[in-house]
């Protein structure tokens, strides 16, 4: 097996008194997709944000392509340029068009020329089914379209890995499919991903591994068939049972 793209080792994180991550270990290999599941408040978003250096960790380290990125000497900006992040609430820039949203990283973070960035931006939008919506403001797009713009924006910087934080949770049910299709497309293209999600059937379909996060620890980690169908831990069984009762599986 080739060297891992992402390695999380013993990461802890507290917000004031509240200990959110209590020692996380996770390895994500090249072209691998890891689904992060767990109850609301279990720390999924915090873990993804720590990997993208949007939060400062307290202890442990994160490695990207074998290099430590959580060292104070490492420039967080340079690290974020090698990663992509898709937010639950899209977080598109409302004062820019969809195309400008997709281009902004290329233009201003990666120093591409305008024509080049625009060509790539248009191609990416077409790839995610957004041809014709280039000049629309995010407000004029549906939630599903907005999230696909956000995925294109994150992907435009040619990231080594994509971090997706419950990218379908803010969507109306009938719009979930189109966004999942975009993620499936990325998986097929070989993108390395960490996907926080509540969509268990989707996790089963695209994830190579499922990590169950509970109270700041990864309690269970393994192939989806094992973790989702034959969970070993009582907490995992209870969590899946609750989802089942709520009709989410």
């Amino acid at each position: 097996m080739s060297a891992p793209v992402l390695e999380v080792k013993g990461v802890t994180k507290a917000f004031g008194e509240r200990q959110v991550l209590r020692g996380i270990d996770l390895t994500v290999g090249e072209h691998e997709a890891v689904a992060l599941i767990g109850a609301s408040g279990s720390g999924k978003s915090t873990l993804l944000r720590c990997i993208d250096l949007l939060e400062e960790i307290d202890d442990g380290d994160v490695f990207l392509d074998g290099e430590v990125i959580t060292d104070p000497a490492v420039s967080p900006v340079a690290v974020r340029r090698r990663l992509g992040f898709v937010f639950q609430a899209y977080n598109l820039f409302p004062h820019m068009t969809a195309l400008q949203n997709v281009m902004i990283g290329e233009r201003h973070a990666h120093g591409a020329r305008k024509a080049e960035a625009e060509e790539r931006g248009r191609a990416l939008m077409a790839r995610f089914g957004l041809a014709g919506r280039e000049d629309d403001r995010p407000d004029n797009l549906s939630g599903g379209q907005q999230q696909r713009v956000a995925i294109a924006r994150a992907f435009a910087g040619k990231p080594r890995a994509l971090l997706l934080d419950e990218v379908t949770s803010a969507l109306d049910p009938e719009l979930v499919g189109e966004v999942l299709a975009a993620v499936r497309d990325l998986k097929q293209a070989g993108m390395t991903m960490v996907i926080a999600t509540h969509e268990m059937s989707f996790a089963r379909e695209v994830a190579d591994q499922v990590a169950f996060l509970h109270a700041g620890r990864i309690l269970e980690l393994g192939p989806p068939e094992r973790v989702l169908e034959h969970p070993e831990r009582e907490e995992t069984r209870r969590f899946l049972g609750r989802l089942l009762a709520a009709g989410r599986i």
């Binding site: 944000r49 949007l54 004062h95 201003h108 973070a109």
Partner: peptide
């Protein structure tokens, strides 16, 4: 979240200010 998103696409803090926060 606008600042987070600006950083996430690889902008520096001052680029985030100039291109994302101030215009809004």
């Amino acid at each position: 979240g606008q600042h987070d998103a600006a950083l996430a696409v690889g902008l520096t803090h001052s680029q985030a200010m100039r291109l994302v926060i101030l215009p809004q």
